[in-house]
Amino acid sequence: MQKDIILAGFGGQGILLIGKMLAYTGMQEGKEVSWLPSYGPEMRGGTCNCTVVISDRPVGSPVIQRPRAVLAMNLPSLEKFEPDLRPGGHLFINTSLISQGAQRDDIEVVDVPANDIAQELGNPRGANMVALGAYVGVTDAVSVEQLENVVRHTFAAKPSVIDVNIEALHRGIELGRQHAAGKED
């Protein structure tokens, strides 16, 4: 069983960080993981992305051309990666910053107003956590409990932001679960 996702957005949105947290959580659960960043001059203020693979078996290709999920935190990311998504795959769209919807109808779209929710929580920098939560809420790629531990560990040096980030994470998870439940109905 393999879960994989390409997470993409602007540099500075915390994309690489939530990718690492996802991979780290998978590793803590005893799964095989890989985290592969895009790198290069475009990292500075431009778009950035990373690919995370979580698997029961040793990870084959860390390069995923046909991802099972895509998180698009900005419009260029949506335009770049929507075409690559596997049919039936999950497309998470940060609707706070992207006004256009998906072009395809053979995929499952999850609207995540990540920045709006983060703003509402008084934690504008927590949009990435909302998005991460939404992905986990929909796909159960990793356990919520482990993920919480990883968030605590990640922000251990800044205790004041732990609770607000966990709150943002949970709002995302809630949103993801509602989406999953709504699909079943």
């Binding site: 690492k20 890989s34 592969l36 960043p37 990870v59």
Partner: peptide, 8 residues
């Protein structure tokens, strides 16, 4: 990839 990738 070997330089930049993260794995356990």
């Amino acid at each position: 990839l070997i330089g930049q990738m993260m794995e356990p």
